[in-house]
Amino acid sequence: MTMDETEILKEFSPEQIVKLNEIIKKHKGKPGGLIPVLEEAQVSLEYLPMSVQKKIARELNLPLSRVYGVVTFYSFFTMTPRGKYTVRVCLGTACYVRGGKAISETVEKELGINEGETTPDRMFTLETIRCLGACGLGPVVVVNEDVHGRVKSSKVREILSQYK
């Protein structure tokens, strides 16, 4: 087993690795195989860390730099796992002027992570967005499908606690 495979095993189950191998096998040797492999791997592994990108590069016989270039170019791919809940804080103009920035800072403090990161227990991923089209409700925080309007900093903890 290569160093990478030991790394992969730290993060994924043997079943997921079997699945990854199947995905690679399906597209190997076909021109333009990289993007479909990455897409299917993203769907079944949920994120594409370094170890997975290295394995894909090696098995498709492509430069690692190219794999990394593609993964970072398309927003569909992520290198870190997503949490069970995605918290999106709106920083569009309307929400921003009504204190959106303070809300996003409070959420960061509450969860102990920065924008784009996931909590170590994989419960929450934090993102910011620009205008949801619900400006009248600003500042707006969305957790998965739930829209929370007129959020105050003091209410952030209460909102998040609904998702434990």
Partner: peptide, 25 residues
């Protein structure tokens, strides 16, 4: 680096205003 030397160290990565030429990762 990629076509003449076939070392392929450098790649354009990231998107939008963060686009940057970098080695992998």
């Amino acid at each position: 680096c990629e076509q003449i030397q076939t070392v392929s160290v450098l790649t354009p990565a990231h998107r939008g205003s963060k686009v940057k030429v970098v080695p992998a990762f």
